[in-house]
Write a protein that binds this DNA or RNA. Structure first.
Lengths: 249, 249
DNA sequence: GAAAACTCTGTACTGCGTACAAGGAGCGAA
DNA sequence: TTCGCTCCTTGTACGCAGTACAGAGTTTTC
């Protein structure tokens, strides 16, 4: 019973954990799952997730497009493998103390997302059950060993932190992507947009006093638009404060 | 100088604000931008963002595909119009008190995302400069009128809250989407995955003690996997606590 | 009227994921 | 050794996406 259909959880999990499978009879494969995943990551790093097409990866490996389907059930599974593989780049150590630990967890992920911005574009409907994603979760929980919280709270905190990092990172990454695709920097774009907006009576600052003031301040402070990195650090501080209050630590 | 090229900020902004434009000479248009946007939203609500194709919308409106390009420069701009339009569904009022105000802002957005899950899939590289998105921002800031914070802090808080809601909502929405696409509920999926995982030595709980324990607890508590709604409420509480601490309120 | 400007439409191009069938390589059994 | 099964590899092809382009028809302006 060798179910090879795409969308099968069994197959996906076995690929994630590198389960060898029974001895095969035909010609030796030219490649391996690892090769395909590595090529996928190479392409994604270079040209973004949209460039990760089966044809492009096959080209990269000097192989026909359809050969890839020998190693991977389909594109979706490949992306999941790439995701888990990338999680393997996260460190294992943790600094002393829950606050420093959680901060490190967040900062490491922040850096990972900037090293591989395409991670933020991958939509896996369900949690990835791969080894490195497990290790990531384990580490996130380990950072809170000293806190007296129940399991549900721990899970919620992990989710909260991951959401913060992803959200903020998406901000900076989306901007970069938009700049690349449109050939306009944030600055160019704003200089083109602001005058148009000024011509529209309904968009007059009087109607949006707070938005105009804060938007202008944030724009000036960071040169064009709000700064995701500042938002990230600020949000992290607030969340850690909130956790400290909850745990009485 | 009537730049109609897609990707032009001027055109997009004028569409967002419904700027009428000079009197036209040819035959009267059968439709309007509003019709197209409404059809887009109808399709997205019914069958998700992937179903929002130019052909499908044209069918919906009883019109040839290419006619849509008379009203809208391209698909990307259409999505941005749909986004701003949906933001128009958010209420304007605010309850008394910053804490209740921010909570309402978050809860309203949470509900909006569940009414229109496709909103979470739209990737606009830059902020949407439409009337309803402006109003949304203005209201978010208004909720903090009584707090003594500077503009940069206000902006960061808005971003933090929006990130929380989007992140948590993505959790529940992604699960629903995965269930629909695969024909498996979370429960089915887990029942298929768990045994496979159990067969893999490297995935033994001894190697991931905390992850196994917490994962099991969270799964049991909510029936299959972590509960995004609980994560949302929990995260909101922590963040509001953190803000209170910062503002000394 | 005639001409210009505009809407609408059908066709067609490129690029995507991948189903399918045919060709060739290597192993196990005779 | 040879047959035959199994598996890897490949080229072709299908359906669907966004949208460029050219022609036909309609309404306004001169």
């Amino acid at each position: 019973m060798d179910t090879e259909e795409p969308g099968d959880p069994r197959r996906t999990i076995e690929l994630l954990w590198g389960v060898p499978g029974p001895p095969r009879r035909g010609p030796k494969p030219k490649l391996s799952v690892e090769h395909v995943v590595a090529a996928g990551i190479r392409v994604a790093d270079a040209d973004g997730l949209d460039a990760v097409t089966m044809r492009r990866i096959a080209d990269e490996l000097g192989v026909a497009t359809m050969s890839l389907y020998t190693y991977v059930p389909g594109r979706e599974e490949l992306l999941e493998l790439m995701l888990d593989h990338a999680h393997g780049e996260l460190p294992g150590e943790l600094p002393e103390g829950w606050r420093a630990g959680l901060a490190a967890v967040a900062e490491d992920l922040w850096r990972l997302y900037h090293r591989h911005p395409w991670l933020l574009e991958i939509r896996v409907g369900r949690p990835t059950l791969g080894p490195h994603s497990f290790a990531k979760y384990e580490r996130e929980l380990a950072a809170m060993d000293e806190l007296d919280l129940d399991d549900v709270q721990l899970d919620a905190i992990v989710s909260l932190l991951n959401g913060l990092v992803a959200g903020a990172a998406r901000g900076s990454v989306d901007a970069t992507r938009a700049a690349r695709r449109s050939g306009m920097t944030d600055f160019d774009w704003w200089n083109r947009s602001a005058p148009v907006l000024a011509e529209i009576p309904a968009a007059n600052p009087v109607h949006f006093p707070r938005a105009s003031r804060v938007g202008a301040t944030a724009g000036q402070t960071y040169g064009g638009s709000s700064d995701p990195e500042h938002h990230f650090r600020f949000g992290l501080g607030r969340i850690l404060d909130g956790i400290g209050q909850l745990a009485g630590a």
